[in-house]
Amino acid sequence: MIDNQQKRTEGAAGTTDAQKAPQLQPKDIHKEFNGNTVLSDISLDVNAGEVVAFIGPSGAGKSTLLRCVNYLETPSSGDLLIDGKPTVKIASKPTRNELMNLRRQVGMVFQSFNLFPHISVLRNVALPQERVLGRSRKEAEERAMELLTRVGLGDKADARPSKCSGGQQQRIAIARALALDPEIMLFDEPTSALDPELGGEVLAVMQELAATGMTMLVVTHEMSFARRVSDRTVFMADGRIVEQGAPEQVFGAPREARTKKFLEAVLER
């Protein structure tokens, strides 16, 4: 609301963008690995608070696209805009500062959790805050405790990650990312390594997070989650966005033959 008003006054003062830019805009993101095109010119507008689910067959480029958004993969070309501003000047050559700035705004959760095994659960969540945001140890651990409690794991604070179940580890990983107060969260197949019951715990936390208005990009094979929780579902195949829209539309009345074929195969299981 306030932002909108600000923009309007800025607009009146002579700036050209009268409308509020989408929070996240990958523009013509192109990615090649050794001459193979993995992403061909992907463009997308994601608004603040939107939950976007990416579905599609393996090798469609969903994860690669997600990893381009925080530059774990460097796009071969294209632009990545946050709040209408380019995050990296030359897409294929990010500077250290650009990467730091980008990653401060974007949090990520991995399929394999990737908690640090040599430190406690609490330290996993607190350490990045101390090093990246410069919070004091006390402050960081308080915040960590608060988030661990929120994901239902306050009692695991002193344990090593290896003493936690997969579902618990993934919830800790979510808390770790949230502790840095990101504006956008990326989830790369967060439940693929979990059995359905443990996956359910993780999805519940994600659903709660979505309800708080966090912008979320979720690569998932959980069709029911995509359908229920996402504001928009994006179907990708062969490095392209084939179709996107409200989940009811994509799941209920897909327009493209490729989407139909995929959904039939997946939903009949």
Binding site: M100, F110, R131, V132
Partner: peptide, 19 residues
């Protein structure tokens, strides 16, 4: 994956190595 996690959290190169 641990290194990618450290990077995605925004740890710089020396912190990543040290911690």
């Amino acid at each position: 994956g641990h290194i990618e996690a450290a990077q995605s959290l925004g740890l710089n190169w020396t912190d990543e190595a040290r911690y």
